[in-house]
């Protein structure tokens, strides 16, 4: 069980997919405009990454080395199709909000990266821990970025239609740049710098 906990914890900070490995940047930047989108994307990544890690770890001894990448991609693409159909049927609002980035989970480097670097070499149980840890690390990064962008860009926070709070001055004069695409680059760049300055993560 110790190994399980270790594989889980490593995804949170030491190899955080977004801030340290800089993987999966496209969806991170694109959908981090609100907490709702961040949670929707996390759910999609969780289902696909967990599924692909389990399947790939289970068949890892039967997959010929030379054709492994196409096999992994077909497995991942099938899981993404399933997630797309589920979201379309049960979470139509999230499906609309994520738009093109839901099918683009296929080419999210996090998923193929974990399949290649971890699941294809480790047993199923450790691959589950790895998937969960990476997803939680991805979720933390997404939530942090979307929280900052939503609060500064709209002057308040509302999650799934519930207004949690709104700030006095910002409510009337939100800083629109944080909601716009350029704000995403700015927030991630500053957060990465902050983490390195405070020593949470290593500088280059």
């Amino acid at each position: 069980m110790g190994k399980f906990a270790k594989e889980f914890a490593k995804g949170l900070i030491l190899s955080n997919p977004v801030f340290v490995l800089a993987l999966g940047l496209c969806p991170t930047l694109a959908i981090s405009t609100s907490i709702d989108n961040a949670l929707g994307m996390t759910l999609a990544v969780l289902i696909v990454l967990l599924g692909s890690n389990i399947i790939i770890a289970a068949i890892r001894n039967y997959v010929p080395n030379i054709t492994r990448i196409p096999i992994f991609i077909v497995i991942i693409a099938t899981l993404v199709t399933v997630v797309n159909l589920i979201f379309h049927a049960y979470l139509p609002a999230t499906y609309e909000a994520l738009g093109i980035f839901l099918p683009l989970v296929v080419v999210n480097c996090i998923i193929l990266g974990r399949a290649e670097a971890f699941a294809s070499k480790n047993p199923v149980i450790h691959s589950i821990a790895d998937a969960l840890g990476i997803t939680v690390g991805f979720m933390l990064a997404l939530l942090m970025i979307s929280f900052i962008r939503q609060v500064l860009g709209t002057g308040g926070l509302s999650v799934f239609g519930h207004d949690l709070f709104s700030l006095p001055v910002l409510r009337d004069h939100p800083i629109a740049i944080f909601i716009l695409p350029y704000g995403a680059f700015l927030v991630i760049g500053l957060l990465m710098g902050l983490f390195r300055r405070t020593g949470v993560m290593k500088s280059e």
Binding site: I177, Y182, F185, L186, G193, R196
Partner: peptide, 23 residues
């Protein structure tokens, strides 16, 4: 560049400014 901003962080900031220019 400040040490903790070297590499990726400063690249992100530049991308933000570049995006603003493209507006």
């Amino acid at each position: 560049t400040p040490k903790s901003m070297k590499g990726l962080p400063i690249a992100f900031i530049i991308a933000a400014l570049l995006g603003l220019a493209f507006v």
